[in-house]
Write a protein that binds this DNA or RNA. Sequence first.
DNA 1: ATCCTATCCTGTAGGC
DNA 2: TGCCTACAGGATAGGA
Length: 277
Amino acid sequence: MPELPEVETVRRHLEATIPGRTIRSVRLSGKRLRAPVSRGLDRRLRGRTFVAVRRHGKYLLADLDGGLTLISHLGMSGRWLFMKRPPAKLPPHVHARIAFTQSGELWFQDPRRFGLLELVNTGAVSRSPGLSQLGPDPIASPPTGESLRAIGCRARTPIKTFLLDQKRIAGIGNIYASEILHRAGVDPRRRAMALSAADWKAIAGETSAVLEEAIARMGTTFSAYRTLWNEPGSYGSQLLVYDRGGEPCRRCGTPIRRVVQAQRSTFFCPACQKRRK
DNA sequence: ATCCTATCCTGTAGGC
DNA sequence: TGCCTACAGGATAGGA
């Protein structure tokens, strides 16, 4: 679910909400997420104050005083929710409840439990598993045709799969990979190493454009994703190919095709995205 | 080294 | 209505 635009939306909302708030208590569900929640996370967070919220790819980094950083990843179904007045009845799948001395609670909810909560020393963030291997963030360091070609010109993998590889570029997921390639006019099945300089330039430009436009609309909501305020994102209405198998291409009317690559659905227009270019 | 496959988990949509 | 299967926005250990 949450890709870079959704995670960036949550980051901005967290940044506007939690810095300056001090943690009174943390309650954990005890359930294992993608990995076990850091041991003693509840005890170590007590009394700490949030300072800032950063992001790298799909990872959120919430810095606290005392040199600590709370790393989180939303996986497929995770959400951060800020509850001004927490309801008496706890909804299902809330794995962390962070209560503040000021007011309000911050909840981490994740039905499928593919998410991640980890507490590390701020200086050790980049050595944390997952983050240590991450490629450049396309918002912090916008890709160029040349920068992408440099990392992709020897990759035998299809360009769609290439864009999903977080070690190469951090933050693109299944929705935006299809959208970027459609707007760039590149067939998702072509091997990265076979792309021309013009193809790479188009992909680089559309990567920035699609991600920025999606951020402006607070991301894409199909079902689960919500912002910190429990609101859906509205980029779904802008999608040109994702989840539109069989429907007419908005540009040329040709039916959108769905194929499976590396166990994931890919959507593309066979007319707008020709093999050769 | 590189790439593909199966797997973690729950919720939901669609076929019957 | 219910039962069953397929599939879902992600990441990763293991095998080829």
